[in-house]
């Protein structure tokens, strides 16, 4: 509650255009922003650029933000959209991973628990851009297939397909990773 009050105070100062408070807000949400952007862009430099662009959007439009609402979901939308814009700009759609028909092995949960951010990013790198994007949007950020369809301008059915394939690929990759780390 006190944290929320402090955040609201911070936001109200940011609404006045006070650069000192904007810096505080930036540092408070830096990790959160970078974490979201890096999942989509898979590259720290690109992620930082997208995160900074998102912060600038926040500082410019924070006047329209209603402090009664939660800041994080509002900010997350900005981060996701900005990341997608960056992705569109770069149009780096890597080749789809050749999926084998082999049934994924069961992966020990202890392996998953030990996955670091770098491990996950390394796994994600093996995914097709669209698969990774759909996976992030649907599974991590909670968008529906309908929303994803309009965001990425693809049919809903394609969104489902990309998700399924992303999961299959991750299972395979995790199995490999599991064997490798065992």
């Amino acid at each position: 509650m006190r944290e929320k009050q402090g955040l609201n105070e911070l936001i109200s100062y940011c609404k006045q255009g006070n650069l000192r408070y904007q810096e505080l807000l930036y540092k408070q949400f830096y990790g959160y922003a970078l974490g979201i952007c890096i999942r989509y862009l898979n590259n720290r430099d690109d992620a930082l650029e997208a995160a900074n662009d998102s912060f600038i959007k926040v500082f410019k439009s924070i006047g329209s933000f209603n402090e009664e609402n939660d800041f994080k979901p509002w900010f997350r939308k900005i981060l996701v959209n900005t990341s997608l814009d960056h992705k569109r700009k770069s149009m780096r759609f890597s080749e789809a991973l050749e999926l084998t028909d082999t049934i994924p092995q069961s992966i020990h949960t202890s392996v998953i628990d030990k996955l670091s951010a770098q491990d996950i990013l390394a796994l994600m790198k093996h995914l097709n851009e669209l698969q990774r994007t759909v996976f992030n949007l649907y599974e991590i950020d909670g968008y529906s297939h309908k929303e994803i369809s309009s965001m990425l301008n693809i049919p809903e059915s394609s969104s489902r397909t990309y998700l399924t394939r992303a999961k299959q690929a991750l299972q395979q990759l995790l199995a490999t990773h599991s064997i490798y780390t065992r």
Binding site: L34, G35, I36, I38, A51, T109, I120, L170, Q171, L174
Partner: peptide, 26 residues
């Protein structure tokens, strides 16, 4: 279950991905 585990792990890991370079980012 492994999918759920993975998704949960991704959420936890990336919820606060602070690389300690916020000053440089600013």
């Amino acid at each position: 279950a492994s999918d759920e585990e993975l998704i949960e792990q991704i959420k936890v890991v990336f919820d606060d991905y602070d690389d300690g370079l916020s000053e440089q980012g600013w």
